[in-house]
Design a protein around this nucleic acid. Structure first.
Length: 227
DNA sequence: GCGACAG
DNA sequence: ATCTTGTCGC
């Protein structure tokens, strides 16, 4: 798919923080009426690195699947050198470039993207999922495996049970139990998305594992080679 | 100063 | 994120 601008993430934390504060006001927390036909999942791995150190090559992968059948429609993998270190709250500047390149190589344009990161549940309201949703101009959802910010109660024990994630007095996401007896995931709207739709869609993309299929497959794609 | 901290 | 052995449970 085509990405209009070539956005640069080659900045320093000082301006990175300003960029996030400026872009957060552009996020739309309203989901489109039409249903999602093609859903993409994206993730990044760092092959060969040791405890986050060592080689600094980022391997990004995007998997597009049919929202109904969950069949894989297309895959895209790419590797780039990253210049930004991992700093909580600034993940986009480390993984963003690689993910965007993987999207550029895509032939199918998805209707929705699920990221293995936070959406608006972020210190400045602009997690990687929101940031990339904005740059790709696509509805997006953040589905992280752990918490970045906010407080929440422990969700119920059954699949589909959830609790609200609050940050600075606002509802920024859902702590969703996708599987009984397993740690819940942190779902938050990215861009052109609302809380209810985000949680409902993620749950609908979950099969027998903890993570929804788009993200789970993207993770497998960039770590092991398989689909 | 002391924790917390997406991946 | 990445490394890695063992263990528990279905």
């Amino acid at each position: 798919m085509e990405i209009k601008k070539l956005h640069s993430f080659d900045v320093h934390i000082q301006e990175a923080r300003e960029i996030q504060r400026r872009l957060r006001d552009m996020i739309v927390l309203k989901s489109p009426r039409a249903e999602f036909t093609l859903v993409a999942g994206a993730d990044v791995s760092f092959p060969g690195s040791i405890r986050g150190r060592g080689t600094n090559r980022a391997r990004a992968g995007v998997v597009v699947l049919d929202a109904e059948t969950l069949e894989t429609v297309e895959e895209s993998v790419t590797e780039v050198e990253c210049r930004f270190p991992y700093v909580p709250g600034f993940l986009i500047f480390r993984e963003g470039p690689a993910v965007l390149e993987a999207f550029q190589k895509l032939k199918h344009a998805p209707d929705l993207v699920v990221f293995d990161a936070q959406g608006i549940a972020h210190p400045r309201g602009l997690g990687l999922a929101s940031h990339l949703g904005l740059f790709l101009d696509l509805p997006s959802i953040g589905c992280a495996k752990s918490r970045l910010v906010g407080e929440s109660a422990e969700p119920g024990p059954n699949r589909g049970d959830s609790s609200t994630l609050y940050f600075e007095g606002r509802d920024v996401g859902r702590v969703l139990r996708t599987k009984p007896g397993v740690k819940p995931v942190f779902v938050s709207p990215g861009h052109r998305m609302d809380q209810e739709t985000a949680a409902r869609v993620v749950l609908g993309l979950v099969t027998r594992f903890r993570l929804p299929e788009p993200t789970r497959r993207a993770h497998r794609l960039v770590t092991t080679g398989k689909t």
